[in-house]
Design a binder for these strands. Sequence first.
DNA 1: AGAAAGCCTCGGCCGC
DNA 2: TGCGGCCGAGGCTTTC
Length: 260
Amino acid sequence: MPEVLEIESYRQLAERVVGATIVRGWADAYAAKKLATPGAWARAVRGLTITDTTRRGKLLVLGTDGVTLGLRFGMTGVLLLDGDAGIEGLFYGPHDFRAAWVRAGLEFADGRRLVVHDPRRLARVELDPDLDELGADALSMTRPALEAALVSRGEGPAIKARLLDQSRIAGVGNLLADEMLFRAGIDPRTPVGRLVPTQRAALYRAFTQTMRTLGKRGGSHTGDHMEARFPGGLCPRDGAAMRIDTVGGRTTYWCSQHQS
DNA sequence: AGAAAGCCTCGGCCGC
DNA sequence: TGCGGCCGAGGCTTTC
């Protein structure tokens, strides 16, 4: 579920702990998988004071007076502050909270707790995350940055795969990718190198519209194409059958008519 | 039973 | 032929 729009809402929630000092941190073996040892998180965060929050794509970054803290949320991770998600409707599946699904967190001197709630264990904590591996941030996409991200040798990969490539564009996930291609009227299988100028212009427009509109509506799952995102769904724009296939390694829905 | 909104690794392929 | 980089497939993990 979490794509750049959700992570941005988590960042805004995390803003509330700027200035607070960590008295204790914990992460289970899965959440700490990217660290040298499972205990590294607890040792590193103790005594740090949060100075600021930033975000690059789907990576949430907590600045401190020492090591920088990174949080990744996988497919089902949610950030909670004292059990308050900050926004409603972001839970995967049954909007359920279980203490057993709290995989990592920080406890502050004032008693508050900032925790990662993640049923499927794909969320990760990081120390001094490497931002250089991430491409242009999706929420502040510019036309030149998009064009640069679309450069390829030869035909290149399918446009959908390129949109999901976090080293080119950081923050676009499966639902946002399908939504912007839906709005742009582009077949997700089109090789990037074969996109003509009018398609590139349409994609940029759809890209920024998608971020703005879905951001206002409340998340990646509020796109126009979502109502047709099931087998047998019909395109809400023209009533044609939606196609389903794996593109860029992910389940992809697109309109057989206006995206061909 | 099969699929799932993220990401990592592996191996094959391509172009220099 | 050799090599690095690109790209797709598959796995992780648990749930519904």
